[in-house]
């Protein structure tokens, strides 16, 4: 199927030569999705995300956001249009941390590397780095049942980070967390984004989270999901916690909120 072709150029192997990219890290063109039962989930989605971009989707519940991420990752197959991405270089963070309860934090982080056949020797430094990036190094011997919700999410992030993917998909990763943990994780995610320079596609129901994290925010309509608004977020990185109380931040949030209310009608 043509829609499943990986990028013609392996972006992960591309050195920082500054050469113009041949393709986007992630690209949907005119993509539609109708489930076998007739549910029309997505309609004519065109969207590309490059490395160094962090795009967030907001939209009414059931409009197809998760479906779009599932298509990108290969868990679901679209019915029309194209999806181009290197499936070997995707990090996917679910709303549930999906940690294996019988593995320690460290062993959980090793899981994906293990599945990709990374040998124990070259794995250790990668795992160390991931754990340090999310601040879990000193908790690496704990089991998930000993962790708070925020720590579980960090472990889940670290697990996805191990293979240094070019594309990161986030499906409401912080939706189950309290406000303070969520904001702290937002700060850390931005730090990761700046450090790793991946292409991020993020889903959230929180407008503040969307604006705070993203280079670009897309608003989707109710099902079948279409992109009905597209905002560039002008704030420079690194973003301080306090920009949330900026007038410009409030104005942009207001616009998105207005569009969303329209989408719900």
């Amino acid at each position: 199927m043509s829609g499943d072709q990986p990028l013609p150029v392996d972006a992960s192997a591309a050195p920082d030569t500054g050469a113009a990219p041949v393709g986007h890290a992630l690209e949907f063109s005119n993509l539609s999705m109708v489930f076998p039962d007739g549910t029309h989930a997505l309609d004519d989605i065109s969207l590309s995300v490059d490395r160094g971009e962090f795009v967030t989707l907001v939209g009414p519940s059931g409009c197809g956001k998760s479906t779009l991420l599932r298509i990108a990752s290969g868990l679901e197959h679209h019915t029309a249009g194209e999806c181009r991405v290197d499936r070997d270089s995707i990090g996917y963070v679910f709303q549930d941390a999906t940690l294996f309860p019988w593995r320690t934090v460290r062993r959980n982080v090793e899981l994906i590397a293990e599945l990709h056949g990374v040998d124990a020797k070259s794995m250790a430094p990668k795992v160390d780095e991931s754990l340090e990036l999310v601040g879990l190094k000193e908790h690496e011997t704990k089991y998930p049942k000993q962790l708070s919700g925020g720590m579980k999410m960090r472990a889940s992030l670290a697990r996805s980070l191990v293979l240094q993917p070019d594309v990161f998909l986030f499906d409401e990763p912080f939706g189950a967390l309290d406000e303070i943990s969520r904001e702290r994780l937002n700060d850390e995610l931005l730090a990761l984004f700046k450090a790793k320079d991946f292409a991020g596609l993020f889903i959230t129901h929180s407008i503040a989270e969307a604006v705070f994290l993203s280079t670009r925010v897309l608003v989707m309509s109710a099902r079948p999901g279409r992109i009905i608004a597209d905002y560039d977020v002008p704030f420079a990185y690194p973003r301080e916690h306090d920009i949330r109380y900026d007038a410009a931040f409030a104005e942009l949030s207001g616009k998105i909120s207005h569009d969303l209310r329209g989408a719900h009608e």
Binding site: S73, G74, L75, Y92, F94, D96, T98, F100, L115, H116
Partner: peptide, 13 residues
């Protein structure tokens, strides 16, 4: 749970 299977499937298990 399905989420665990999907995680494994994503990485070609």
């Amino acid at each position: 749970e399905r989420g665990y299977h999907e995680l494994m499937n994503l990485h070609g298990a």
